[in-house]
Design a protein around this nucleic acid. Structure first.
Length: 580
RNA sequence: GCGCUCGUAGCUCAAUGGAUAGAGCAUUUGACUACGGAUCAAAAGGUUAGGGGUUCGAGUCCCUUCGAGCGCGCCA
């Protein structure tokens, strides 16, 4: 049994019996919330009053009278307004809780009550195409969710569903042959994947002869021809090298081990059709094999089908997505499938999930969730593009983040050794890009703005990293063994100490809330609150100059704050430099 | 036309159905013999797009109007 770190959660548990006694039933929610009038407030009396036909204040008074589990937790509890309970925590209680969390390697973050096997589908770039800004959100959000899910104890299977199959590969392989393998390899290893793709595309559009060769090559590829497969693998290998270079620079967990491209499901595709057919779900419509999940209509108001086999016999992405569901549930035994995919695909995924449920491939307790996200916009509020109008290359984005971060550090901390500057600039620059992406509600579009994300003020990665670095600076001067601070009970006296203590103790709830909705911005908001609580504490409460007992107590608060910040940023995939 | 998502301060964003809607930027005003001022404290800034409804209580849930973005049968 994990210790509950968040005082608000403890309070709710202690208060619940009193609410239940007054309401005369079990399962009453005390509705404990953070408060700006006290340390916490409990709003449950208003609902109970309605239920049992008494006045809210009467109920609130009765709850206070019945609450006998609060000794040692609360310093005061009083009825206010129409029937709210304002609660002030006991400082000694908070100190004790801090000590427990400080002694815990997990910093109070509890393990999931039910451990699940979770497939996270994210990133998914296309072979022979360069990664661009369109892959930013899925990669960054997916990575953060993976880190958090693993941290709370789930078994996570990362799947990078790369686009490594389909009709374009006929033309790509033919172009490869035209260029000659070695020359093509040189060309591609330079990283100019887009140029290669565009050349192939141009030939495909211009030449009937090439078009015919490309089509024949697709047939060979799908038929498993040895030489064709070898060339295909060559293309895939050159592309994944590019992907890995980006992932490495970005600092995400994806490796070749996580590759699970469309080609991996090739053998399953015919089975998808067969099984749908046997279940009687398959219908023929305009020459294609389709399934009609209820509730979808097209332009004309007619039922909208999910096409699983094209009129000419080929499979499409719906087939592949259904095969994925089968593979993930039946072979891997996953009970939660997360799709970190852009919001525009909502209808498609919804139809795929519906069909999978109709077919019985996705049933309780297994479920699929579309973790949708909005677009990255430029300052003109349109999709972010490079100056030339092309999608912004991922690698250029990373380069610019580094350049800008390095310039900022050189200007603001010229004392930092030059050899450290590059490493720190990487942490700041990449962190800024990731945090900007993670810190707004994922379902909304967001405006990409270098100056804002790299600012050291406001809700940005550099601000959080700065708070962490300041604490590290304190410890460079303090000459104490940080681990020795983790067994002492901090004394909470000043208001700023209390705010900071409550913030640090809320890490568990922040992680839980974040995972509840798969919304990383909740953890970001939490860490920002923690950072502001710290800077306020830092301004008002001298640490190193304080008398011995207070000094040790405040050092302990600093240590815990830094650990939570580093771990929290780490869960977002962001590093915390000790100096910056 | 239908569907999905969104609409909150000048700008960028928060707000598990709870009291007086919060931050940052920009603006204004304070605090630098500094544990890292890369900061802090404060002021000002709002009919939560409009209108109905449910509820003890609505930015949040429902209906509707307006506006924006994205989807809507053989690309993925």
């Amino acid at each position: 049994m994990n210790h509950v770190a968040d005082p608000l959660v403890t309070l709710a548990a202690r208060l619940a019996p009193a609410f239940e006694a007054v309401a005369g039933r079990t399962g009453v929610d005390p509705v404990v919330r953070p408060s700006d009038r006290a340390d916490a407030q409990a709003n449950g009396a208003l609902a109970v009053a309605k239920e049992i036909g008494k006045s809210p204040r009467e109920v609130a008074d009765a709850v206070v009278a019945a609450a006998n589990g609060l000794q040692g937790v609360c310093a005061s509890i009083e009825v206010a307004g129409p029937g709210f309970l304002n609660i002030v925590f006991d400082n000694a209680f908070l100190g004790g809780e801090l000590a427990k969390v400080a002694a815990d390697d997990r910093l109070g973050v509890s393990l999931a009550q039910r451990t699940r096997k979770i497939v996270v589908d994210y990133s998914a770039p296309n072979v022979a195409k360069e990664m661009h800004v369109g892959h930013l959100r899925t990669t960054v959000i997916g990575d953060a969710l993976v880190r958090m899910l693993e941290f709370v104890g789930h078994e996570v299977i990362r799947e990078n569903h790369i686009g490594d199959w389909g009709t374009p590969f006929g033309m790509l392989i033919e172009h490869l042959l035209d260029l000659g393998e070695t020359e093509a390899a040189d060309h591609l290893s330079l990283g100019d994947l887009d140029g290669f793709y565009k050349q192939a595309r141009a030939k495909f559009d211009a030449s009937d002869e090439f078009k015919e060769r490309a089509r024949a090559r697709v047939v060979l590829l799908q038929g498993g021809d040895g030489e064709t497969s070898r060339l295909w693998k060559l293309l895939v290998g050159l592309s994944t090298r590019h992907f890995n270079a980006v992932y490495d620079r970005l600092g995400v967990l994806l490796t070749d081990h996580d590759l699970m491209g469309e080609s991996a499901y090739n053998d399953l595709l015919p089975q998808v059709i067969e099984r749908l057919d046997k279940l009687g779900l398959l219908q023929e419509s305009d020459g294609a094999d389709v399934v009609f999940p209820p509730g979808y209509t097209n332009r004309d108001g007619d039922p909208l089908p999910l096409i699983v086999q094209k009129g000419k016999g080929g499979f499409n992405y719906a087939t592949s997505d259904l095969a994925c569901v089968i593979d993930r549930v039946e072979r891997l035994g996953a009970d939660l499938l997360l799709y970190v995919v852009g919001a525009p695909q909502a209808q498609h995924l919804s139809m795929v999930f519906d069909v999978a449920r109709m077919a019985g491939w996705l049933s309780e307790p297994s479920e699929a969730v579309h973790v949708a996200f909005g677009s990255v916009l430029g300052s003109d509020r349109k999709m972010l593009k490079s100056r030339s109008g092309e999608p912004l290359k991922f690698i250029d984005l990373l380069d610019e983040s580094l350049t800008r971060a390095e310039a900022a550090i050189a200007e603001k901390n010229p004392d930092l050794a030059v050899e450290d500057r590059l490493a720190v600039a990487r942490m700041i620059g990449i962190g800024a890009v990731k945090y900007a992406d993670l810190s707004t509600d994922r379902v909304r579009d967001y405006v990409f703005d270098w100056d804002r994300m790299l600012s050291f003020d406001g809700n940005t990665a550099p601000y959080l990293q700065y708070a962490h670095a300041r604490i590290c600076s304190i410890f460079r001067r303090a000459e104490v063994d940080r681990t020795s601070l983790r067994s002492i009970v901090p004394v909470i006296a000043e208001p700023q100490e209390k705010v900071l203590a409550l913030a640090a103790l809320g890490f568990d709830s922040a992680v839980a809330d974040t995972l509840d909705k798969y919304s990383p911005h909740r953890l970001c908001t939490y860490l920002y609150d923690l950072a502001t609580a710290f800077t306020s504490f830092y301004e008002h409460c001298p640490v190193l100059k304080a008398d011995d007992e207070v000094r040790r107590s405040r050092l302990a608060l600093c240590d815990l704050t830094a650990r939570v910040m580093e771990r929290g940023l780490g869960l977002l995939g962001i590093d915390s430099p000790e100096q910056m």
